[in-house]
Design a protein around this nucleic acid. Structure first.
Length: 288
DNA sequence: CTCCAGGTTCCGG
DNA sequence: CCGGAACATGGA
């Protein structure tokens, strides 16, 4: 079957790369379908495909896709703000066209709560299990897919229900977060109105959300393109590329450096460095 | 079998 | 503020 049979429309998408945008580890539930990708944005099922320099989307999803994929981000301007160093330049070249998407806030926060000490493949697996068991059923062209479960849907479950989805110790955190949001103890719509620091503090009130997960949520779910999550990969990158033979280097110092050095689009710089390192560095480099 | 994964939290210096 | 340890699960 060709994708044209599914009634697709083209988007205006210059300087855009779908493959790296969906596959760089900022979002985990998209699955390859034919020559494209099938996934959900909130409760909207979307099929996306890039060929001949154009991006096609299943009919009806044009506006949602354009916003989600951040096709309005001025990528050339963004890259021009990156610090002028060899490592950054190489990552930017490697990630040409990759964009930071605009994920629905809750599923972004929730997904990263389940991400701690998990490989990307596991995070995806957990997302799919949660969606299939507790999310709304969606459909595209005869294919079944699922929306991420709402806070309310998760809040009424037991910790055992979530542990049965291979969440391990993250079950308690996801459940606690879902309940706080379902009860209104934390209001993500209000968080979106706060400045970066206040929004980060508000997110950190949720169980299982610390500095790193909060920054991922801010970057991928709240359009805070300056947020700079520091995970094991980025820590390796920073130590290796910017602090080569520095013996003592506290996490505090790394935070200060990255917040300052990478500028107003630090989140973009971070994701480019992350993706490049993950795809080109041997596993475990820089650990000893 | 051992090691480690897009961390957070708690606890003693 | 800093370093350690516990916390679950599965793939390499």
């Amino acid at each position: 079957m060709t994708s044209m049979a599914a009634n697709m429309t083209a988007l205006t998408a210059p300087d855009f790369d779908l493959e790296s945008t969906l596959g760089c580890g900022q979002v985990f539930h998209w699955v390859r379908e034919g020559a494209g990708w099938l996934g959900a944005v909130g409760d909207a099922a979307l099929f996306l495909e890039q060929r001949d320099g154009q991006v096609f989307v299943s009919a009806g999803g044009e506006k949602i896709a354009a916003r989600y994929l951040a096709l309005d981000h001025p990528l050339a301007e963004i890259c021009a703000t990156f610090p002028d160093d060899p490592a950054m330049a190489e990552a930017a070249r490697f990630c040409r066209g990759m964009r930071i998407v605009r994920q629905p806030a809750w599923e972004c926060v929730a997904t990263f709560i389940t991400s701690s000490m998990k490989q990307v493949a596991h995070i995806a697996q957990i997302s799919h299990t949660l969606r299939r068991r507790f999310g709304a059923r969606l459909e595209w062209n005869g294919r079944e897919l699922f929306a991420y479960p709402t806070p309310k849907a998760l809040a009424q479950l037991s910790e055992a229900d979530l542990r049965a989805c291979a969440l391990g110790f993250r079950a308690k955190n996801l459940l606690g977060a879902a309940r706080m949001i379902a009860e209104g103890a934390v209001d993500l719509a209000k968080v979106a109105q706060l400045d970066d620091a206040a929004a980060r503090a508000a997110l950190c009130r949720l169980p299982g959300v610390g500095e790193k997960v909060a920054n991922c949520a801010l970057l991928f779910g709240f359009e805070r393109v300056r947020a700079f999550p520091i995970d094991v990969w980025i820590e390796r990158v920073l130590r290796e590329l910017y602090f080569k033979r520095k013996r003592k280097l506290t996490t505090q110092r790394l935070r200060e450096f990255s917040a300052e050095y990478f500028g107003p689009y630090g989140g973009y710089a971070q994701q480019y460095l992350f993706h490049h390192a993950r795809k080109t560095w041997p596993r475990g480099r820089g650990k000893g």
